[in-house]
């Protein structure tokens, strides 16, 4: 289980009032992601989703609060935790000078996967994502859709327990997005815990078991999509979000 408790994050950079920039302002950012569950982190740009996911992925440290994965914290078990998770971001690019096979081999070696097992996994991943034709081509020469498939493929190499997706479908066409969404559904069935951030509300409504709505670094609602719709008396998450941030935005 991914367990997030009272996370606060501020940056050393100063705002116009010469105060430290707070991204995750409240100390009430707490939630859990269980195995076999897809949790959506929703909110507009600048809500703090990426910062929060970077903290959970161990790329950033929070000023306050804690992240525990299977009861292990980053302070004492950083490398062990990183072996359990896989982080895929829409902003993250791949090494253009490597081929998909070279990239997956490199990732597998970083995760200390046994060489025989690694080769087996790579073969099955190549088949699963139909990468046979371009597996030895340099990533820099691949199309956006092919590159996206390679991006997902490299996340699978070490067979992680949890996935963290940050705006993974951002800027992709519907076919490329579908590849990712299908993948999420499949991995959920395989019992993997998935934390999925997006600003596409409709997308989240379809695949998330629970959602956390973020705005300006604050959690404005949590629950299943149905619970949130019921609470806000709206028909979709998009309207629910606007109903929830009405006061906050005017402030």
């Amino acid at each position: 289980m991914i367990e997030i408790k009272n996370i606060v994050k501020e940056f050393n950079k100063l705002d116009e009032n010469k105060k430290k920039i707070k991204i995750l302002a409240d100390n009430d950012i707490s939630f859990e992601v269980n195995e076999g569950e897809v949790v959506g982190l929703l909110g507009p740009n600048g809500a703090g989703k990426t910062t929060l996911l970077r903290i959970i992925a161990g790329i950033m440290n929070p000023n306050k609060g804690s992240v525990k994965i299977d009861d292990k914290d980053y302070k004492n078990n950083e490398l062990e935790i990183k072996k359990m998770i896989s982080f895929l971001s829409g902003n993250t690019k791949l090494y253009k000078e490597l081929s998909p096979i070279e990239l997956m081999t490199m990732c597998g070696k970083y995760y200390n996967v046994d060489e025989k097992e690694l080769n087996k996994r790579i073969d099955s991943i190549v088949k699963r994502f139909s990468m046979e034709k371009f597996k030895n081509q340099r990533i820099g020469t691949l199309s956006t859709g092919q590159t996206q498939r390679v991006g997902i493929a490299r996340c699978l190499v070490h067979n992680p327990k949890y996935y963290i997706f940050d705006e993974a479908t951002s800027g992709l066409d519907i076919i490329s997005s579908k590849v990712i969404l299908d993948f999420i559904n499949e991995e959920k069935k395989n019992g993997k815990g998935i934390l999925y951030s997006t600003h596409y509300m409709e997308e989240a409504e379809n695949i998330c078991d629970r959602v956390i709505l973020l705005n300006k670094g604050r959690v404005i609602a949590t629950g299943t999509p149905e619970e949130i719709l019921k609470k806000t008396k709206t028909d979709n998450l998009r309207d629910a979000f606007f109903a929830l941030i009405g006061d906050d935005n005017n402030a």
């Binding site: 998770i85 971001s89 090494y95 995760y111």
Partner: peptide
């Protein structure tokens, strides 16, 4: 690509 590198153990 740096963010990818940082996610590795």
């Amino acid at each position: 690509t740096f963010e990818t590198l940082l996610t590795f153990p």
